[in-house]
């Protein structure tokens, strides 16, 4: 597979699974109602099929992430692994009927810009070497 196609498929899969996880979390918790520190609340959550969407999303994200890291540079990969913020926001507004205030939109833009800056940071090889224990 060409490098570009590999990145497109890998990053696409990662964003898809991360988004699936978050949307599934929301749908299963909404089904259970407002949080109560009781076993019955947890039971309601785990009896809802969407909670398994979150589990599948976690597993899919893990596989996509580990596959991507074989070839993708860690910096941009790290950024994209958090850019599910964008897709989750779109789905929240478009399909779950949530609304964002102007201030929250500005906040979202700051967070996205912050993620981009984190991805532009150079990986320091010394970080890895310093941390290894013999």
């Amino acid at each position: 597979m060409k490098r570009r196609d590999f990145y497109m498929a890998g990053f696409g899969a990662l964003m898809f699974f991360d988004t699936l996880t978050q949307v599934s979390f929301k749908l299963s918790s909404s089904h259970a109602g407002v949080f109560l520190p009781e076993f019955s609340w947890l039971l309601k959550v785990f009896l809802n099929p969407w909670v398994w969407g979150a589990v599948i999303g976690y597993l899919g994200s893990f596989v996509a992430w580990m596959t991507l890291l074989k070839r993708a540079p860690v910096g941009p990969a790290f950024a994209v692994s958090h850019l599910d913020v964008v897709t989750v926001l779109i789905i929240s507004v478009a399909y779950l009927g949530e609304k964002l205030s102007a201030l929250q939109v500005v906040g979202a833009l700051c967070i996205m810009l912050g993620i981009v800056f984190l991805s532009l940071s150079k990986e320091n090889k010394n970080d890895e070497q310093d941390n290894r224990q013999s």
Binding site: G107, C110, G114, N131
Partner: peptide, 26 residues
């Protein structure tokens, strides 16, 4: 804990995220 380096880009990114979270969360 791991003495990982925080270069300018990381600090800038972290600052922007903090500002964004503060704005979004009110």
């Amino acid at each position: 804990l791991f003495k990982e380096r925080l270069d300018r880009m990381r600090v800038l990114g972290m600052t922007l995220i903090c500002v964004g979270v503060a704005l979004a969360g009110g």
